[in-house]
Design a protein around this nucleic acid. Structure first.
Lengths: 252, 252
DNA sequence: TTTAATTTGTTCGTATGTATG
DNA sequence: TCATACATACGAACAAATTAA
């Protein structure tokens, strides 16, 4: 049997951390709502009994987390911001960039997210959203002649519109970020592809199939199409050993 | 046709932001690897030609992002940290807590993540991992008598072990966070449930089915079980209007 | 429109506790 | 053990920016 420990480890808390925690807790319990203002730095000094430098370090941390925004000269103090999914992007991008995570994991996650987004879009889309998705597909067709950069941008827009039709902002933001991370890792290879025009045409054909599935509310097909297309598109960029990881998402 | 703009909007860059950007860029391109040391604050002062306070604001931002760690008195300077999935947790938790996101979206996302985790685990698990999953299930059985808190902890461990067997750290960390967010939103209701013991027994029965599916490498069933169980478990907590969102994930 | 007051951004100097060799 | 260099924190000061009278 293990001894029941009397004490837990402590780590010295720095002054600015205590300030951050108090402000965060106030925000979390809703005492400060978006649009509200924090006291001025000098007021915070006296309320927390710390120096201005300490207050400023805390404010910078809160600002980098997307919780507040402070502007020079504003007598009303720092503004409490509405918390949005945008604040997830930077951490996810860093994770993908620092090879803390493998390309095959990213592709796998993207297959899951995009398949689910397609499925939800097929079930929940409005007629206006179908029209927007079709317009995005048409834009991709046009962009083939404008080069790979324009085509990539149109492709991103297409998936954004589909994800938005799905109605889940978590899927949407995670999908956006993972898509960007994957593209950043292999876009140089794609640009040097021997016949990029053929690749783009094939991509448009695949996306057209998705549009059809969404239009006919065919959930299963919309989901499956995303997984298969992505696997086909990216399989050549992953090692042989990691292909089974991706294939596990294709079995029925 | 829209005018082609000559200029893009500019926002004044603050000194500490420029310092953060330079350090981040150095980290991103791999010139500084985990374990390496940043110059001391005084060296950074002279290299960036800014004051000590400005350097410190930048360091606090980098530290809060999980990129570095600085300790008082360390003559080697701040340490560059390995970037891990842990740095995603806080932003995701904030997002879930600030009702920037609805309960039904969270549950929906959890259905997707846990279904996929189960599917991957069923395909890729080793025998040791099967044993670990079974042990986690046994722990859940024991914990029924120890109250809801212990049972919840055992439940969390179970899903962690399964997700780990799936082998995708993105799914794992997102799953952990979303699970925590969902539980935080409704755990008070669960505790006040009239017959929580019956609920826990039912939960164990459901998890046992998952174990069987994983053991027999039944991908489809493992995936589907997660989605159905979660829907059944949480359906009563979402509004009638948002139920179709979740049901879209159950159709075959 | 101008002016005055307040606030933030930044700098500098100083004192204190801490880790390394 | 001691000396050195370090990070933490405080406080005062000035410039630039914003708001409101």
């Amino acid at each position: 049997m293990s001894e029941e420990p009397y004490f837990r480890p402590v780590r010295p808390t720095r002054a600015y951390e205590a300030v951050v925690e108090q402000v965060e807790e106030t925000l979390a319990r809703g005492a400060l709502r978006p649009g509200d203002r924090l006291p001025s730095e000098r007021d915070l000094m006296s309320q927390f009994s710390v120096s201005r430098s300490t207050v400023r370090q805390a404010l910078r941390v809160l600002e980098s987390a997307g919780l507040i925004r402070s502007r020079p000269g504003d007598p009303r103090g720092a503004e409490v911001l509405p918390y949005s999914t945008k604040n997830l992007r930077k951490p996810l991008e860093r994770l993908a960039g620092r090879d803390g995570i493998s390309l095959s994991e990213l592709i796998q996650f993207r297959m899951i997210l995009e398949g689910s987004a397609n499925r939800l879009a097929a079930r929940l889309r409005t007629d206006e959203q179908v029209a927007a998705i079709e317009a995005a597909l048409e834009r991709m067709r046009e962009a083939i002649d404008e080069g790979y950069a324009a085509f990539g941008a149109a492709d991103v827009t297409f998936h954004d519109v589909v994800a938005q039709a799905g109605g889940n902002s978590l899927i949407q933001v995670c999908g956006e970020v993972v898509r960007g991370a994957v593209l950043a890792l292999i876009e140089d290879k794609l640009q040097r592809a021997p016949d990029s025009v053929a690749l783009m045409r094939q991509s448009v054909a695949h996306h057209a199939e998705v549009v059809e599935a969404v239009r006919h509310a065919d959930l299963i097909r919309a989901d499956r199409l995303a997984r298969c297309d992505l696997y086909e598109y990216y399989a050549s960029y992953v090692t042989e050993e990691s292909k089974p990881m991706l294939q596990a998402l294709l079995e029925e």
